[in-house]
Amino acid sequence: MNTIIFRTISPVLVALTLLFSVFVTLRGHNEPGGGFIGGLIAVSAFALYGLSHGVPTVRHAMRFHPMEIAGFGLFLAGASGMLSIVFGVPFLTGLWVFPTIFGVEVALSTPMFFDIGVYFVVTGSITSIALALEAREGGV
């Protein structure tokens, strides 16, 4: 898999795929998509990068250990549910605000942050699995 074409193309592909994964996640509430799908797309990006440039490069590029990303995602999902407690409604009740930023109405909601949490959990956990299996020496 160390062909020059693959190695040259893959960074570009990885960047595009990651961007696409964010797009798919954020539009999930209204169009096909969502955290699970977006997360899996992100995983495929990292797995691809790992195949072309080796696991250490991916780990370096990610800066955080994948499981740390997953942990952050779980925290985010839980915290977005906890926010409803502050407003005196049951755990995980959706809360919405529609602020106008630069003249555009933006929908911000706890389900959205919940979905972003899902995205991070799926990305982190499964990237961790994929990288662990790609690493030849069975290392970290």
Binding site: H29, N30, G81, A107, F114
Partner: peptide, 20 residues
């Protein structure tokens, strides 16, 4: 729930606890 993708709304909102 302000969402047009029913599947996603069920996952992140109606059945959020399951998903968690």
């Amino acid at each position: 729930a302000h969402g047009r993708n029913v599947v996603n709304v069920i996952i992140v909102d109606f059945r959020g606890l399951d998903t968690l």
